[in-house]
């Protein structure tokens, strides 16, 4: 990943920071400069809870650039508690146990390494929630 792109998207990738529209209340993730519902530019950053459930999932056997060495890996669309869908990898889970509707939580994990001189890219993945006790 290019360093400026990494820098621009890091609050979304590290902190699951989206936006909330001050006019209509719509929550967006990824963050947007214009509300996707009402078109207002009055949006402010908001860190999302990271809780949600699996909307759909699959397994990637041949990934895009930078991901080939990690295949196969699980990917999902996660319906966040605040409403938006997010595309993310699943981690710390038995592939056979994954199902639609399963509760998950966000964790920060290494996504990829861009060779010996490139950056190590971290970002969100989702896992089944750790249960206290």
């Amino acid at each position: 990943m290019e360093v400026p792109r990494h820098w621009r998207t890091q609050s979304a990738r590290y902190a699951l920071e989206g936006t909330v529209c001050q006019r209509c209340g719509e929550t967006s993730f990824p963050p947007r400069d214009l509300c996707s519902r009402c078109g207002s530019g009055e949006v402010i950053a908001k860190r999302l809870s990271g809780r949600g459930e699996i909307y759909s999932y699959s397994t990637v056997f041949q990934g895009p650039n930078g991901f080939a060495e990690y295949a196969p890996y699980l990917v999902a669309l996660v319906r966040l508690a605040e409403g938006p869908l997010v595309a993310a990898q699943l981690t710390d889970v038995d592939p056979d146990a994954v199902q639609i509707g399963m509760p998950v939580e966000m964790v920060t994990r290494r996504l990829r390494e861009d060779g010996p001189k490139g950056i190590v890219v971290y970002g969100y993945k989702f896992r089944p929630p750790l249960v206290a006790g």
Binding site: M1, R5, T9, A12, P30, S56, Y57, S58, T59, V60, Q62, G63, P64, F67, Y70, Y73, V75, A76, L77, V86, A87, A88, Q89, L111, R112, V121, G123, Y124
Partner: peptide
């Protein structure tokens, strides 16, 4: 920024 950068392929998007 938010599909291929997390490791989604085009096939995987259709699989979802």
């Amino acid at each position: 920024d938010f599909e291929s950068q997390i490791g989604l392929s085009f096939v995987a998007i259709n699989a979802l």
